[in-house]
Amino acid sequence: MARIMTDYGPLLLRAMGQTCLLALWGLFFACILGMFFGLLSVLKNKACNLIAQLFVDIIRGVPMIVLAYFIYFGVPYGLNTLAGAKVTLSALQAGTICLALNCGAYMAEIIRAGIQSVDIGQMEAARSLGLPYWRAMQRVVLPQAIRTMIPSIINQFIITLKDTSILSVIGFPELVNTAKNVVANTFMSFQTWIIVAIMYLIVITALAKLAKVLERRLNRGRA
């Protein structure tokens, strides 16, 4: 155990950094996608609802490992043979897209449910005063919806952070991929995987603690 720590500690820490980097990029775009499709699904427009539903259903129905292979290998190959376009994606780019799509679909559902949990009367009251739909959404409905969404969103963040390990299959040097190399060099799989597990545990526990603090602060001073 001590040998792994001294010889490979810095490497594993750097890999953890890569994991967090990938997760952050993925989450960033997932929030945008989730917001977009979440709002699309609450609009009073059948076509918009259908598009949002389709996005969520497709992404939810495909395992992320398939999505990762498809985006990293399939899409550049397809574009090359079908359209003659030379496109290559780095593992980070493909990984980010993959996480953003996957997490974005779940975020869209969280955001839809959050908005729908706000009493319809809140929107009606705002509209009756003459506020346009989006203004009412922004000022009245979303601030209330976000409070109910926070726990689910944090939970989704944690899942996404863990899902980065799946992207070891496209060769991104995140923690699991790096740990595999360490094991290949040292044959000390027991010690290595314990260390990796503890590293994940620490980061995720910290994230969960942060979530609790955030949640408490949001609820402070409110009846």
Binding site: D119, G121, Q122, E124, A125, A126, R127, S128, L129, G130, L131, P132, R139, V140, P143, Q144, R147
Partner: peptide
């Protein structure tokens, strides 16, 4: 309709005060 609603106040059974 937003312009018209500015001049027409409405009071609801369940008050619908903005909770936030």
């Amino acid at each position: 309709i937003n312009k018209v609603r500015e001049r027409v106040g409405m009071v609801f059974q369940h008050f619908n005060l903005f909770q936030n």
